[in-house]
Amino acid sequence: MKTLFSFIKKEFTEQVRSGKLWLLFIIFILFGIMNPAIAKLTPWLLETLSDSLAESGMTVTSVTVTALDSWVQFFKNIPMGLIVFIILESSIFTKEYASGTLLLSLTKGLERYKVVVSKAFVLSALWTVYYVICFGITYLYSAYFWDNSVAQNLVFSVVIRWLFGMFVISLTVLFSVVFKTNTSVLAAVGGCVAVSYLAGFLPKIKSFVPTYLTDGNSLIYGLSESGNYTVSLIITLLLTVACVCISIPLFNKKQL
């Protein structure tokens, strides 16, 4: 237990001293502010553009902005945050393979599963904290300017969107154990998400795939209800747990 804790401590120290922690911190704060800001500025933007839009035959009617617009922005921007997070963290294993730093720790008797568990834990914890910060800021602004109660299933839609992030993190862990460079890790993770996304176009399996969880907009507009997501939710949870569980025996056999 103590060895696990000291490896986790090492991972956190690395996040802080490499500057990644602060960078991601600021980025997620920025996203958090921008969501309501863009919603707030939309009418003003449309107004300034109305002349040129009118020329091209579009008429602009005055729009009223609600908290829903702010949350639409949230669901639109959070994938950007996740992408930046995964790109920055995709080297969490591969960097250690390339430099050989893990070799020394392992010859000191550190059990291999603790490496996987520590890194998966640190990634999940950071993602959760960043996500909560981004959500919190958007929530507070939306509550200040508008009324959050118009958004239906808000907590549920936000939680399943977070779970999708956890799923992507578990993929990152799995492929980090399989591959040696972070470009292959990114390609494989990207590939998996793309497959899930494309599979979402097939009506038959549409509601089973993990990317179905990213559809927060229909939930907050009340076009869809939480019950529709149960299958996808369970599948994603199982896949997430499975990815981490498979990673451990794979890592035990990995040639370093």
Binding site: I26, I29, L30, I33, M34, P36, A37, K40, L41, Y141, Y144
Partner: peptide, 11 residues
């Protein structure tokens, strides 16, 4: 828009 502007600029 000041409530946005100030923290955005700071961040």
């Amino acid at each position: 828009i000041l409530p946005f502007l100030i923290p955005l600029i700071i961040a």
